[in-house]
Write a protein that binds this DNA or RNA. Sequence first.
DNA 1: TCGCAGGGACTCG
DNA 2: CGAGTCCCTGCG
Length: 291
Amino acid sequence: MKNAVIVEGINFFNIKQILESGQIFRFQKINDTTYIIVAKDKVIKVGHQPNSTSILICNSTVGDLEQIWKPYFDLETNYEEIIDTLNNKDEHMQTAIRFGEGIRILRQDPWEMLISFIISQNNSIPQIKNCIENITRKFGEKLENIDSEIEFYSFPSPEDLVKVSEEELRECKVGFRAPYIMDACKKIIEEEINLNEIFTMKTELARDTLMKIKGVGPKIADCILLFSYGKMEVFPTDVWIKRVIEGLYFEGKEQKLRDIQQFAKEYYGELAGYAQQYLFYYAREHELFKK
DNA sequence: TCGCAGGGACTCG
DNA sequence: CGAGTCCCTGCG
């Protein structure tokens, strides 16, 4: 494989856990230790053996590694410290962390996350992936291939998507979310919302700003804040994590969304986002607290 | 085979 | 607030 780089000395990194913890939709599994990822208008292949401290990244230069992939994979963050702190909370958290201690929270593109999580509402993961792939194939541009078998496309920009009709969007099978996507495009193009400014906003204002877009409620806003803006104190609360928290900390009694958020804020503090990822991955893989 | 629910949010009453 | 509704399709 041409242009492969190796990163050494990385602990708490497991490519399968990172990609299958629900934060990313554009990846393809080759086998348990090899995945293709499409991000930043690039296609890379990542190879990593569990318990190894080195990561192989194909189709990357050393420059890309430093500028793009180290931040993208959150390799600069000290996960040992995060894990130590969360492990002190209780045995549930310890169990969840032991199961998914190689999870890292990716820093993905805000625009792509905005559209992707709008699509995610009341939808299943295979279906979400399909919609996004349809959109990239229809409105994106073909990316340089790393091995001629599969073709990948860039995620279309707001400028690309704003020209698209509702009917064309519906052809991508996004259904009732098509007007939401159009509203997102419109608000970005007309500069009612500037996605870059959200980086510098405090979390509350950032969330309120995102929620001005139709189809973006608290859960989707929090996903965007966590998975692309590095706002680690948010706690995206979907039906799964809600049942997990109710099951572990409220004797299985149903709570209001507000109560779950309040609990997470008090109990996990600025590490709430990480806690959410560990709990979510653990519960889903084991189908705990399934309805 | 077929009906149902799925990582929510909107819109009413 | 609470309940009903929303495209679409993978999965039971």
